[in-house]
Amino acid sequence: GTVTGRARRCGWLDACVIKYASYINGLDSIAITRLDILDELEKLKICVAYKYNGEILEDYPADLDILSKVEPVYEEFDGWKTSTTNIREYDKLPENAKKYLKRLSEVIDTEISIVSVGAGRDETIIIKDIF
């Protein structure tokens, strides 16, 4: 969108694949970048599991054939509908943004240590002992 001028589209976050990536890479924490992109959305969704043949799978399937046939199971969140761009402290984020981040951390079983709210280096929130 930056070069072409077309509107950017956001897909929903697949927390199952992030949980798997975190596990296989031994991550202690992750960074969430460009939270500000979500600022104007009415609703947000996180894929928290997959449905396969009527069964709920909470873990990323190792079998690619199964993976190609799963249906995402989403949890829906209210958006915050306010700019986060100038926020530099976690406590000052909108409540719905904090709920979204907290639930994401729970699902992926990994702490979130950095949240950026823009493209600049100074648009970063360092999080300690929250999740």
Score class of each variant (00 low, 15 high):
Thr2Trp: 15
Cys10Ser: 15
Cys10Glu: 11
Gly11Val: 06
Trp12Tyr: 10
Trp12Met: 07
Trp12Thr: 07
Leu13Lys: 05
Ala15Ile: 01
Cys16Ser: 06
Cys16Phe: 06
Ile18His: 08
Lys19Glu: 11
Lys19Ile: 02
Leu27Ala: 14
Leu27Cys: 14
Leu27His: 10
Asp28Glu: 14
Asp28Cys: 06
Ser29Pro: 03
Ile32Asn: 07
Arg34Lys: 15
Leu35His: 05
Leu35Asp: 04
Leu35Asn: 04
Leu38Ile: 14
Asp39Met: 09
Leu41Asn: 08
Leu41His: 10
Glu42Ile: 13
Lys43Ala: 07
Leu44Gln: 05
Lys45Pro: 06
Ala49His: 11
Ala49Cys: 09
Tyr50Lys: 01
Tyr50Trp: 05
Tyr50Gln: 00
Tyr50Ser: 01
Tyr50Met: 00
Tyr52Arg: 01
Gly54Ala: 03
Ile56Ala: 06
Ile56Ser: 09
Leu57Thr: 04
Leu57Asp: 09
Asp59Thr: 13
Tyr60Arg: 04
Tyr60Ala: 03
Asp63Asn: 11
Leu67Glu: 00
Leu67Ile: 00
Ser68Glu: 06
Ser68Gln: 03
Lys69Ile: 00
Val70Glu: 03
Glu71Tyr: 02
Pro72Lys: 01
Gly79Asp: 05
Gly79Ala: 08
Lys81Glu: 15
Ser83Gln: 14
Ser83His: 13
Thr84Asp: 07
Thr85Gly: 08
Thr85Ala: 13
Thr85Trp: 08
Asn86Val: 02
Asn86Asp: 13
Ile87Gln: 05
Lys92Met: 05
Pro94Phe: 13
Tyr100Lys: 01
Leu101Asp: 04
Lys102Ala: 02
Arg103Asp: 03
Arg103Glu: 04
Ser105Pro: 04
Glu106Gln: 10
Glu106Lys: 08
Glu106Leu: 08
Val107Lys: 08
Ile108Arg: 02
Thr110Pro: 04
Glu111Ile: 01
Glu111Asp: 12
Glu111Gly: 01
Glu111Tyr: 13
Ile112Cys: 03
Ser113Tyr: 11
Ile114Asp: 10
Ser116Arg: 11
Val117Phe: 07
Gly118Val: 13
Ala119Cys: 11
Arg121Tyr: 09
Asp122Cys: 02
Glu123His: 09
Glu123Phe: 09
Thr124Ile: 12
Ile125Ala: 04
Ile126Arg: 10
Ile127Val: 08
Ile127Leu: 09
